[in-house]
Amino acid sequence: MRGTSGDGAPEPELGLGLSTVGDYAVISVTGEIDMYTAPQLREAVRQLSSEGRMRVAIDLTPTEFCDSTGLGVLIGARRRLTDAGGSLVVVCANPRIRKLLDLTGLDKVLDVREAVPGE
């Protein structure tokens, strides 16, 4: 649902759907990830790891838009999960976001897949 901030400006939409596929806690992201909404995604990963869910998949296939702030969250999430003995999989069959991962070289740093492992 699109809300409004205190001054009436429309707020970016971000939807985070949680599910489990095999060993992975999956966060399916709809809407736009930018510097305004990215903290919600960061917090969702943090919440899962605080619950002991250290194998996390972030599904960007349904994501409408992702900027560098979103990429920063992915890198931070990967580091935190890996440090804790877990792992992060980025699921992305979305060509626009794949392009972003490719041109930043993050496709080689992150574990990017077409589908959640075990799906």
Binding site: M35, A38, P39, R42, R46, D67, S68, T69, L71, G72, V73, I75, G76, R80, L100, L103, T104, G105
Partner: peptide
Amino acid sequence: HDALEEDTLSEEITLIVLGGL
């Protein structure tokens, strides 16, 4: 700390994205 670190990362990534795009 995490948010600040990611902000630092993000500013660097913005230029990488812009340069590639």
